[in-house]
């Protein structure tokens, strides 16, 4: 034991940090599967009808096969072990709506969502940080007040409604924005590399497709970003105010550095580290926001898939989506912590 402890502390600081973080990440993932197991196998009074639907549940042969396959007659811990085993093999069960394995469905829809959420995250970071920094510099002045109202409006507006209104105004009335979907009707998808159309068309040099794909992603990404813009703005403002109040910022001013350098280099850096962490958490919320945005913009991602599955009460498919989103969230936050460790020399060097 003590040997283990000594050799643990002999590891470089950064490695120790990474290992600890990985361990927590794996634990969280396990926990997520447990919740997912409870919701799909335990909570529904009759897992057979919950998973197969009433029609299939009335067929004794199907029910018997199902019970056998999922070991429903076995005690719960054993069921969970079986569940985990199937999970590791990539088996999330079959969607009763598409009659395909949930894993296959997810593989098909995930790239569109990742593309949309990433575009929205970039927008949210750019606008959120810019607004937050301005608000902090102009503290209590009119720009600060205005930005405060903007950011509160951002976290208050119902996403699905904003999606409809913007679509109505920019597509239906003004004709500026293209319609719903990822490409124009009948448009041909670029060769599949990542299945994110903007990236694939860029990689293969299909400029026309690229510009269509971009024009289609702007509106849904903006709508999806609004909530996160609000929260990142608020957080950036708070982090910047704290940072601007630090002695080291006063030192930088006393050294006669231009105000721009003082703010962008000295005050921003610690604030950015904190913002990155918050952005990681916001990414999870953004992924779940895709449900509402994708269903309005007919964006063929996992959000829309979850929506259609929920309407059909297709529990396996929804749980598949939430499992994937939760795991993405955990992985993103792990990555964010690592970035933080790399930015902050106090963690990197110990």
């Amino acid at each position: 034991m003590s040997y283990l402890r000594t050799s643990w502390y002999a590891l470089p600081n950064l490695l120790r940090f990474v290992l600890r973080r990985l361990f927590v990440g794996v634990l969280l993932c396990l926990g997520v599967t447990l919740i997912s197991f409870i919701l799909t196998q335990v909570v529904p009074g009759d897992p057979v009808s919950a998973n197969l639907g009433d029609r299939a549940a009335s067929d004794p042969v199907i029910v018997a096969v199902f019970r056998e396959r999922y070991g429903l007659d076995k005690p719960l811990p054993e069921q969970y072990a079986l569940y985990l085993q199937r999970l590791v093999q990539g088996d999330l069960g079959e969607s009763q709506q598409t009659h395909r394995p949930v894993t296959t469905d997810l593989g098909q829809y995930l790239p569109a969502t990742i593309e949309l959420a990433s575009a929205a995250m970039i927008l949210a970071l750019v606008f959120g940080i810019a607004l937050g920094v301005i608000a902090a510099i102009k503290r209590d002045g009119w720009p600060d007040q205005l930005i405060r109202i903007i950011s509160l409006a951002g976290v208050s507006v119902p996403t699905f409604w904003l999606a409809l209104v913007t679509l109505y105004v920019f597509f239906f009335k003004l004709g500026i924005a293209p319609g719903v979907g990822r490409l124009n009707p009948g448009g041909k998808a670029p060769p599949a590399i990542t299945n994110m159309f903007t990236i694939d068309s860029l990689l293969t040099g299909q400029w026309a497709t690229f510009s269509t794909a971009i024009s289609h992603i702007v509106l849904p990404a903006l709508v999806l970003a609004i909530y996160t813009v609000g929260s990142i703005t608020r957080f950036t403002r708070a982090a910047m105010l704290e940072s601007l109040n630090q002695d080291y910022v006063r030192s930088a001013r006393a050294k006669g550095l231009p105000e721009r350098t003082v703010i962008l280099r000295h005050a921003m850096r610690p604030a950015l580290a904190a913002i990155v962490t918050v952005a990681g958490m916001a990414f999870g919320r953004m992924l779940s926001g895709t449900v509402l945005v994708e269903s309005v913009f007919s964006w063929p991602g996992i959000g829309q898939y979850a929506y259609k599955s929920a309407l059909a009460l297709d529990l396996r498919a929804i749980m598949g989506v939430s499992l994937v989103v939760a795991v993405i969230y955990i992985v993103v936050n792990m990555a964010v912590d690592l970035i933080y460790a790399l930015i902050d020399p106090r963690i990197r060097l110990g």
Binding site: L28, V32, L287, G289, A306, Y307, A310, M319, S322, Y329
Partner: peptide
């Protein structure tokens, strides 16, 4: 840790799953 775990789930999607179950 349980709190962390729940927070890792996407709120709307998990709520959708609960509704689908109930």
């Amino acid at each position: 840790r349980a709190a962390d775990l729940v927070m890792a789930f996407p709120d709307i999607i998990l709520a959708m799953a609960v509704v689908a179950a109930l």
